[in-house]
């Protein structure tokens, strides 16, 4: 898992709960990296799950909500860092479709070792899109947060429903925009 996920997660925790909580969850988690993350580095996914688990225990928050929030947060980070990815699209579905086809391809050029999830899309029309998230990391909620944030970014409202298929590490999101 790329380091930016860790640095942005800790940044969001620090913003929400302050340095102390960050320090605590790092200390309470057994992390091979010792919690020192850089965005250009690569770390094991289990460290993220440990940090989430420890945080939820410390703050009694829901891990699903936490990941959803993190999705929203991460979208904002990406928007800041890589605005061109977003500017080239006018419609949220265009953007969502470009993740698999365009953005991930660009990511792999920079980080050939990046292990990226798969986002297969199937657009029924400009108001309905099915998006199948497949990843061994089980961060479907993070994906949902990202999808919701993108709708918001393109100023669209609608619903995001999901059907998960645990046997195949996949979740299908059915995105329907309001007319």
């Amino acid at each position: 898992m790329k380091g930016i996920v860790f640095t942005e997660f800790l940044s969001m925790i620090e913003n929400q709960y302050g340095d102390g909580v960050v320090d605590t969850i790092i200390n309470q988690s057994e992390l091979p990296s010792g919690g020192a993350y850089t965005s250009v580095g690569t770390y094991d996914i289990s460290e993220l799950h440990q940090l989430i688990k420890t945080l939820c225990r410390e703050t009694s928050c829901d891990s699903k909500n936490l990941l959803n929030d993190f999705g929203h947060h991460l979208f904002g980070t990406f928007l800041n860092l890589y605005p061109e990815f977003f500017n080239r699209c006018k419609h949220p579905f265009d953007f969502l479709e470009s993740i698999e086809n365009h953005i991930h391809r660009e990511v792999l050029k920079l980080y050939p070792d990046a292990e990226l999830p798969s986002f297969q899309t199937n657009r029924t029309n400009d108001f309905k899109l099915e998006m199948k998230y497949t990843s061994a990391r089980h961060l479907a909620e993070l994906a949902r947060g990202l999808i919701e944030a993108s709708l918001e970014h393109y100023k669209k409202s609608g619903t995001v429903n999901s059907i998960s298929d645990p046997n195949h590490d996949s979740t299908i999101f059915v995105i329907e925009l309001n007319r």
Binding site: G20, N27, G34, V40, G41
Partner: peptide, 28 residues
Amino acid sequence: QREIEILKRKVERERKARQQAEDFLEKR
């Protein structure tokens, strides 16, 4: 005292992270 400790650890993590990034950058 604790805040100082937290900061110290944070700085230490930042330093280590920078080190990692520098190593990575150097390697790249």
